[in-house]
């Protein structure tokens, strides 16, 4: 049958063309479903990973921190666990001081093989960061760690050298000296249950677990890092509370209110009973014991 020449042939072509169009439309819809499915699968994988991290890492770490009785070990645990969770190359743990500064509690860097503070045996000699400009009293928002403490929220930059609004000049000097390159930075506030910031956990250079290339900190980790910050702050606050109580007890002051004592003694010694007892005390002592020697 010659299709090109008959009405049937025209119908068939029309059919083929329509079917092709409809078939193409069908392929398109199935492709869009696959893309959606893939997105959903990735989301589920991420959620599962988050749950696993919560159950297998955050909660056990939080319990271990709460049980820690040595400050250096506690600081070290907070920093190293945070570094591990975020796949960071290095980090710093700061503590807020009564003088409104961020004191360096511990500093580590795997690539540079640096460890100061904690149980390393090497003290941190870096000067504290002021939360407020000493000259003007203005909040110090130029430093990412102090900005994090002041804002009481996590801050993250993908590249320190290109981050607008922050002054990383100190970091650049350090990098040049140590032949290092600080790229991604994440700061997490350590907030106690009342919401007061008592420290900052700063992590640098998140690394791709397979290639070890430096990458931005995974924004999906923010929630988990925030939880770690809460648990760390609770453990620190508890430790400092016990320390303060112990110091108060150890520095026990004994104060006798002499006037009150004299008043109470006078009241008792002025009684007939006491006068009687005093007059007879020696005699009573002898009598109570003397009878048995007869």
């Amino acid at each position: 049958m010659d299709l090109s020449s008959s009405a049937l042939g025209a119908f068939c072509w029309a059919y083929v063309i329509c079917a092709s169009i409809l078939g193409a439309l069908g392929i398109y819809r199935g492709g869009r479903n696959r893309s959606e499915s893939l997105r959903l699968v990735r989301q589920l994988e991420r959620e599962k990973q988050r749950s696993d991290q919560l159950a297998n890492f955050i909660i056990p770490t939080g319990l271990a921190m709460a049980a820690e009785t040595d400050l250096n070990t506690l600081l070290e645990r907070i920093l190293l666990e945070g570094k591990s969770l975020s796949q960071a190359d290095g980090g710093t743990l700061y503590l807020v001081t009564p003088e409104k500064t961020l004191r360096f509690g511990m500093v580590v860097n795997d690539s540079l093989k640096i460890a100061m503070g904690g149980t390393s045996g090497h003290p941190v000699t870096l000067p504290p960061l002021p939360l407020y400009d000493p000259a003007t009293g203005e909040p110090n928002r130029k430093n990412i760690a102090t900005a994090c403490a002041l804002a009481a929220k996590s801050l993250s930059v993908a590249d320190a050298y290109l981050a607008p609004g922050f002054d990383f000049s100190g970091t650049k000097v350090f990098d040049q000296k140590m032949s290092y390159r600080t790229i991604s930075v994440l700061c997490v506030p350590l907030k106690d249950p009342a919401g007061q910031v008592i420290g900052v956990l700063q992590l640098i250079n998140a690394q791709d677990p397979e290639t070890r290339r430096v990458i931005p900190f995974d924004e999906h980790l923010n929630h988990l890092m925030g939880l770690l910050g809460l648990l760390a702050a609770a453990a620190l606050k508890s430790y400092l509370r016990v320390q303060k109580l112990t110091e108060e007890l150890e520095n026990l002051r004994i104060q006798i209110d002499e006037a009150k004592k004299e008043r109470q003694v006078a009241e008792i010694t002025g009684s007939d009973y006491f006068k009687n007892i005093k007059a007879r005390a020696q005699e009573m002592r002898s009598r109570v014991k003397g009878q048995e020697s007869k």
């Binding site: 004994i254 104060q255 006798i256 209110d257 004592k261 109470q264 003694v265 008792i268 010694t269």
Partner: peptide, 10 residues
């Protein structure tokens, strides 16, 4: 401490 001071005196 305060109370014992009284007893010592007595």
């Amino acid at each position: 401490f305060q109370g014992t001071a009284v007893t010592v005196e007595l």
